[in-house]
């Protein structure tokens, strides 16, 4: 847990997404109901009552975006073919967790320093079956960890 402490209480992961990409999707996101809502699994307060082994029962909206299709541009690939769906809080939690698994080691950068949270965001936001299955697992894990932390120490994990 050292890494979490080192990052400080106000640590927030900064996405590698460029400002242009952010603007590109701002309108899409505000015009649709793509922002995932964790409210569907009940407020954190409700969950603190649950036993520690409780696994959240998330009801996620199906990702409606289109994939990159059967003939995408390969040489200059569009990494933003679908909008990202993780909230800043979820991205930060992913960053903290991935840096616990792969912290900086001397000159070798940590997971978050090489934008692993952005890759996870791209992955869980993708409209393909495999990624949507992973999305449920990953978002459930993130929700569970925060709930578990609240149960044990009365605050969120990150």
């Amino acid at each position: 847990m050292d890494n979490t402490i080192q990052k400080g209480a106000d640590y927030q992961y900064k996405s590698g997404m460029t400002r242009r990409d952010s603007l590109k999707w701002l309108s899409v996101l505000s015009a649709s109901a793509l922002v995932p809502s964790l409210a569907a699994c009940g407020s954190p307060k409700d969950q603190t009552k649950a036993i520690a082994g409780h696994w959240p029962d998330l009801k996620l909206d199906k990702i409606q975006a289109k994939g990159y299709g059967k003939d995408p541009e390969l040489v200059n690939a569009d990494r933003m073919a679908w909008p990202r769906t993780l909230t800043p809080a979820q991205l930060t939690l992913v960053a903290v967790l991935s840096d616990i698994i792969v912290p900086r080691d001397g000159a070798v950068p940590s997971a978050s320093e090489v934008s692993v949270p952005d890759v996870v965001d791209e992955w869980v936001s993708a409209p393909y079956d495999r990624q949507q299955r992973d999305r449920l697992d990953i978002l459930s894990t993130l929700a569970w960890i925060d709930t578990e932390a609240e149960t044990r120490v009365s605050k969120k994990f990150a």
Binding site: Y68, G69, P72, R79, A81, W123, D129, Q131
Partner: peptide, 18 residues
């Protein structure tokens, strides 16, 4: 790292993005 989903295969590109 230049490819969507790190180049993983999808129904659009079964054997990987590239």
């Amino acid at each position: 790292a230049d490819a969507p989903l790190m180049g993983a295969g999808t129904v659009d590109k079964d054997f990987g993005f590239y």
